Each structure stands twice: as C-alpha cells, then as structure tokens.
Simulated assay, not measured.
Amino acid sequence: MTALSAEPIEAAPDVPTPDQVRRAPKVLLHDHLDGGLRPATVAELAAEIGHELPVPGAVADPDALGRWFRESADSGSLERYLETFVHTVAVMQTPEALARVARECVEDLATDGVVYAEVRYAPEQHVEQGLSLDDVVAAVQQGFDEGVGAVAAAGGRIVVRQLLTAMRHQARSMEIAELAVAWRDRGVAGFDIAGAEAGFPPTRHLDAFEYLQRESSHFTIHAGEAFGLPSIWEAIQWCGADRLGHGVRIVDDVEVGEDGSVRLGRLAAYVRDTRIPLELCPASNVQTGAAASIAEHPIGLLRDLRFRVTVNTDNRLMSDTSMSAEMLALVEAFGWGLTDLRWVTINAMKSAFLPFDERLEIIDEVIKPGYAALGC
C-alpha cells in the first residue's frame, strides 16, 4: 500500500458561469454513437422503417421519446441501461441512417464546444440489413466528414475519430480489431470492447488485444464500471489497455482514513503512477449504480489524488447530457473552477489516440487559447 497526504486541492476561485462552461473547449474520449442520437432522429428513422417505438406518436412529440430514454436508463442497473439501445441500433442499419446519425453527432458536439472527440460504436450491431462491416465504417466516416465540413463552413473547428467496439459477449473481437487496423489511417483511432462486464472478462478477447499490440494500435477497454477491480486488473495487466473505459471502481483500491490519510492499493498506485487515463462518465455512472450521486462520485477524490482523470458523456441520449452539463455538475458538486476544467481537458487531449504532434497542436492552438479567452 502507498500512503500519502489526503489534503484536498482547494476549490478554485475561478468558478465559471454556465455560459463560460458552454464556450470552453472540450475533449471527449468516451461517447457512444448509438447512445447519442437526437430523439427526433430516432422517431423519424423508426417511422421510415416501421420500427415500433415505446412512445406512441414520437414523431410529433420527440421530447416525450427523449424522456422515455432517460427514465428507462435511470434504473441503477447496467443491464437495464443497455436495453435502451435496442431502439437506437434498430434505426441505424442503412448507410444513409448511419451517415445521418454520425453527421448530427459531430454537429451536436461542436455546438457544445467539443473540439476533439473519439466516438465509439460496434460495427457488428449494424449489419442486420446486409451491410458489411466495412460498409458500416465507411458510412459512419462519411457522416463524420460531412459534419466536420459543416462545422468548418460555419467557422468552427472540430476533429472527430472513430473507435471500433467489439461486444464482449460475442466472438467477433478479432474481426473488429482487424477492421480497426485496416481503417486506422482513414478515420479510425482505435479499438474498444463493451457490454455487460459480469461473466465476460476482457481476457476472453486476449487474441485481439495481442494482435493490436503487434500492430502498434491503440485500444481502450470498458472496465471497472459494474464489475470492479478484477476487470480493471485484467484490462491492464493481462490485456494491456491504453485507457480504462470508466475505471471508476479503481476507488475500491483507495482507502481513506478517518484522519483524512489516504492509502493506495497496488493496483490503484500502478494506475496513477503509469498515468493510465480514466474515461469517467459521471451522469452515466450514477444511472448504472457505479456511483450513488454526482456529489459522491469518486471523480472528486481521484482528481485530488492526481489520477489521469477525464470527463465524458458516455450516452448523451440516455443520460440527457452533454459535456457542458457534465462539467457544470462537477462545478456544482466539487467547486471546480476553470483551472480544473482546463486540467481535465488537457488530460483528455494528452490521452487521445491521435499522433503526438496533432495532440500538441490542439492543446497549444485551441485549448489553451480557448481557456485564456475565458480568463483562465
């Protein structure tokens, strides 16, 4: 165990206004394409293909559909949370639908002040109407390119990359890993596995991770969201993950004494010492029961202890959230200031699956000047 001071970092004096948070440049590493659709888009695409939605008249009342997604996801169960994706995935089975969803994703993120994003999805879930895996990736890339172009035409700037996800309860991880490598110079930044953690350890996909390592390719692993320390340990020490998707349960290896002293277990110390990024998603973590509330979310402690903390949305539709909303919630819960938001933003950009010089350019030319303009 590693003992250290538990002196919290003082709340920053530069507490931002909601408008400042909205205008602040943001970096998003953990966002699911099929979890971020506009309710109106779900309703329109469902009507086109005859897919039955749980809210009658959703085309005329997309707000009601949005509320259904949020309320259904507010269950405290990861498994129930994942059930909401049945309806979004169902309407994302054609090139046109995939491109539209991807384009709107970019536009929505840019409107929220996001300047760099890695958006993930599972290609294997979008082949029900005969698309090949390659077709799926191409359609999503077309949408991203269109979105980036539209943002640029409006005077904005955003860089978006794909993360290709394999479902941990299926057996296509090697196929998806090979797809990620084939597309890595054409818009794909890396690989991921996702889905229910219990009973489906990341080591089931060890061949895919070993292949990615041989190909010098980046990957993150959903771990430490619902299943705790064993999944984190396997993701890092067996599979070699570059980042932890969520990783919130690393706090289970952090002991805080009554006197405020802190002792890190060996795994927590390793994660901190080696600067393994944590893709924390506060609103989603509360929904799935990984944290009791935003005020009790481990992100406050992990930030004070200087873990490589990043802030993310996970599923903007299901959590009815945005990067601005996530950041504002942390400002309110922990007294974070602009300096804290700048710190987690630079953390995220440092941790992006993007070449070093491109990361540095965004930090120096976009993030730092953006926060300087806000007085930080």
Score class of each variant (00 low, 15 high):
A64R: 15
E52Y: 05
N285S: 12
A152N: 09
F353D: 09
L78S: 00
E361W: 14
V254H: 05
S231D: 11
G337A: 14
A283M: 10
G187S: 10
V140L: 05
R103I: 02
R67H: 10
V181W: 06
F69Y: 11
M1N: 11
G224C: 02
R80L: 15
K26A: 03
A122C: 09
L374R: 08
R100E: 13
I9Y: 07
Q93N: 12
F200S: 08
A283P: 05
V254N: 09
L29C: 01
W233M: 05
V140T: 13
E10F: 12
G147K: 13
A325Y: 06
N347E: 02
I250D: 00
E361T: 14
P13H: 05
H169R: 08
G113M: 10
R38K: 14
C105N: 15
V114T: 13
V331Y: 01
R70E: 05
I221S: 11
R100Y: 02
D252F: 01
T84S: 10
Q162F: 06
E178V: 04
E83C: 02
R67Y: 14
V86C: 03
M92D: 03
T339A: 14
T94W: 02
R243W: 08
A43D: 12
V309Y: 03
G66C: 13
G335C: 05
S231L: 14
L305K: 02
D112C: 07
M349F: 05
I276Y: 05
A73L: 13
D304P: 05
T313F: 01
R303S: 15
D63L: 15
S77F: 01
C105I: 12
T313R: 08
N347P: 02
W336K: 04
Q287F: 12
E175A: 00
E52N: 08
I158Q: 09
A295W: 08
E258I: 12
K368G: 04
P8G: 07
A290S: 09
Q20I: 10
I236F: 11
D242W: 10
E128W: 11
L37G: 00
I346R: 08
V136I: 12
M349W: 02
D63C: 12
R168S: 04
G240P: 06
P298K: 09
F227A: 13
A348C: 06
L78N: 03
L33N: 00
R172P: 00
Y371I: 07
L280H: 06
A11G: 11
R303Q: 12
A90Y: 14
V140I: 07
A64P: 03
D340P: 13
A208F: 00
